Amino acid sequence: MAVIHLTDLEAAINFWRARRPSPDGVAIAPELAALAEVYALLALRRAAQVDEAALSAAARAAWLAWYDTTPDTPCIAICSTAQGDDVCKGCGRTFDEVQHWPSLTPAEKRHVWWRITSDGVAWRFNRYAERAAGQAGPWRE
């Protein structure tokens, strides 16, 4: 099951708020309405993530439009999995995640991004942070 984390929904909502602000302070763009419905259901259920398959077509389209503005891969061109590590010291992904990255869905990729960002121990977050500085991400607003 591919899930979308609450922080990604918030980032997508903020993306659409900036891109299509309310003309009168009351009305919201259709993309915002679709994402807000998902967000409200998460709040009601006190959940932190939603199954990607549970999104309406409008919410999925709005989320994917935001997703297309994010960096695809956390790679910083220092891959220790090539030297046998189970988890890459450079980006924080597991060997399987590195190997199968091209075939992961957007929600699966964002789940990996969420995990490595939460962990914050990969070199992309400390030792080689300057390599990642040009990339936007969920940890930077």
Score class of each variant (00 low, 15 high):
residue 108 E to M: 05
residue 105 T to F: 13
residue 81 T to E: 10
residue 58 A to C: 08
residue 13 I to C: 05
residue 121 V to K: 12
residue 1 M to W: 01
residue 30 P to Y: 12
residue 58 A to K: 11
residue 78 I to A: 09
residue 95 F to W: 07
residue 90 G to R: 12
residue 27 A to I: 04
residue 27 A to Y: 03
residue 140 R to W: 12
residue 91 C to K: 11
residue 52 E to Q: 14
residue 90 G to I: 10
residue 2 A to L: 13
residue 118 S to L: 06
residue 126 N to I: 04
residue 112 V to L: 12
residue 12 A to Q: 04
residue 125 F to N: 00
residue 47 A to S: 15
residue 52 E to F: 07
residue 66 W to T: 00
residue 75 C to P: 02
residue 28 I to R: 15
residue 133 A to I: 08
residue 48 A to T: 05
residue 33 A to M: 03
residue 108 E to P: 00
residue 61 A to V: 01
residue 9 L to W: 02
residue 98 V to P: 01
residue 74 P to N: 11
residue 41 L to N: 13
residue 106 P to M: 13
residue 66 W to A: 14
residue 51 D to W: 03
residue 140 R to K: 14
residue 27 A to S: 14
residue 103 S to I: 07
residue 87 V to A: 13
residue 133 A to L: 05
residue 110 R to W: 08
residue 50 V to I: 09
residue 129 A to W: 03
residue 21 P to D: 13
residue 128 Y to N: 11
residue 130 E to I: 05
residue 34 A to E: 05
residue 79 C to N: 14
residue 124 R to S: 05
residue 3 V to D: 05
residue 14 N to S: 12
residue 87 V to T: 15
residue 57 A to Y: 01
residue 77 A to I: 01
residue 103 S to G: 15
residue 88 C to F: 07
residue 17 R to G: 03
residue 114 W to I: 05
residue 112 V to F: 13
residue 12 A to S: 15
residue 34 A to T: 03
residue 25 G to Y: 00
residue 85 D to L: 02
residue 10 E to W: 06
residue 105 T to N: 06
residue 125 F to V: 01
residue 105 T to K: 11
residue 92 G to D: 07
residue 42 L to V: 07
residue 116 I to F: 13
residue 138 P to L: 14
residue 15 F to P: 01
residue 36 A to I: 01
residue 1 M to I: 02
residue 68 D to W: 01
residue 80 S to A: 07
residue 36 A to H: 06
residue 60 R to Q: 06
residue 123 W to C: 10
residue 108 E to N: 02
residue 15 F to S: 09
residue 13 I to W: 09
residue 77 A to Q: 12
residue 84 G to P: 03
residue 81 T to A: 14
residue 100 H to R: 13
residue 59 A to C: 03
residue 76 I to N: 07
residue 134 G to E: 14
residue 110 R to F: 10
residue 91 C to E: 01
residue 107 A to V: 03
residue 126 N to H: 13
residue 91 C to Q: 06
residue 54 A to L: 05
